[in-house]
Amino acid sequence: MSSIASKPYSMPIRETNADRDPAALALNALVWLLGDGARADRLLAMTGLDVPSLRARAGDPATLVAVLGFLEAYEPDLIDCAAALGVAPAALVHARQALENA
């Protein structure tokens, strides 16, 4: 078996719209975040949300601000998420700021 075939491969999502909607960016960050069980558990513990309330309020600006704030609080996650979404980490920070000020 080839060593390439034994390694997982994930293609990063590449951002093509620099003026992306902050809520859409935050939702994509949430999807990325929930893709890792330990990270998702940490989000729930830190925000006080449970799975049903997260599902019900996933599109709520306050929830999206909390998600982006969670990523900002741990720089490695912020950088990894930004890379997976194909944006600069600052784009996630700016999205949080825009949602807070909306």
Results as ranks from 00 to 15, higher is better:
Val87Ser: 10
Leu49Tyr: 04
Ala88Gly: 13
Ala56Met: 06
Arg42His: 13
Leu78Tyr: 06
Arg57His: 12
Ala40Thr: 10
Pro61Gly: 01
Asp60Lys: 07
Ala83Ser: 14
Leu54Gly: 00
Pro61Met: 09
Asp60Val: 08
Cys81Pro: 11
Pro76Asn: 00
Val65Asn: 02
Ala58Ile: 06
Leu44Ala: 04
Gly86Thr: 13
Gly86Tyr: 13
Val51Pro: 12
Leu54Thr: 00
Leu54Trp: 01
Gly59Ser: 15
Ile79Glu: 15
Asp77Trp: 14
Ala38Ser: 14
Leu49Glu: 02
Leu44Ile: 08
Ala40Asn: 10
Asp80Gln: 15
Ile79His: 15
Met46Asp: 14
Ala82Gly: 13
Thr47Ile: 07
Leu49Met: 05
Thr63Ile: 03
Leu43Met: 07
Pro61Thr: 04
Thr63Gln: 02
Phe70Cys: 02
Asp60Glu: 12
Thr63Val: 04
Ile79Ser: 10
Ala56Glu: 03
Ala45Asn: 14
Ala40Cys: 12
Gly48Ser: 02
Gly69Met: 02
Val51Met: 10
Ser53Lys: 08
Arg57Phe: 06
Asp77His: 14
Ala40Pro: 09
Leu92Gln: 07
Leu68Cys: 05
Ala62His: 07
Glu75Tyr: 02
Tyr74Gly: 06
Val87Trp: 05
Pro61Asp: 04
Asp50Ser: 12
Arg39Trp: 01
Asp41His: 15
Leu92Arg: 14
Ala40Phe: 13
Ala84Cys: 15
Val65Ile: 12
Leu71Tyr: 04
Ala45Phe: 12
Ala45Thr: 13
Gly69Pro: 09
Ala45Pro: 12
Asp41Pro: 08
Val67Phe: 03
Gly69Lys: 10
Ala40Met: 13
Val87Pro: 08
Glu75Met: 07
Gly59Pro: 06
Ala62Ser: 09
Pro76Arg: 02
Leu78Ala: 03
Leu44Gly: 07
Arg42Phe: 12
Leu71Phe: 06
Leu43Gln: 01
Val87Leu: 11
Gly59Cys: 11
Ala45Asp: 13
Val93Cys: 12
Arg57Val: 06
Asp41Glu: 15
Ala91Leu: 09
Arg55Gly: 03
Ala82Ile: 14
Ala84Ile: 06
Phe70Lys: 00
Ala62Asn: 12
Thr47Leu: 09
Gly48Glu: 00
Ala40Trp: 09
Ala38Ile: 14
Arg39Met: 07
Pro76Phe: 02
Ala62Asp: 08
Ala66Cys: 03
Val67Tyr: 01
Ala66Gln: 09
Ala45Gln: 15
Leu68Ile: 05
Arg39Phe: 03
Ala83Phe: 07
Ala66Met: 13
Ala58Val: 07
Val51Ala: 05
Ala66Pro: 11
Ala38Asp: 14
Arg57Ser: 07
Thr47Asn: 04
Leu92Ala: 09
Ser53Phe: 06
Leu78Pro: 14
Tyr74Asn: 13
Thr63His: 01
Ala90Glu: 11
Ala88Trp: 08
Ala38Thr: 15
Leu54Asn: 00
Ala88Thr: 15
Leu44His: 06
Thr47Phe: 04
Ala84Pro: 15
Leu85Met: 13
Leu92Glu: 03
Glu72Met: 11
Glu72Gly: 10
Thr47Trp: 01
Gly69Tyr: 00
Leu68Asp: 00
Asp41Cys: 14
Thr47Tyr: 03
Asp60Ile: 12
Glu72Lys: 15
Asp77Leu: 12
Leu44Pro: 11
Leu71Pro: 11
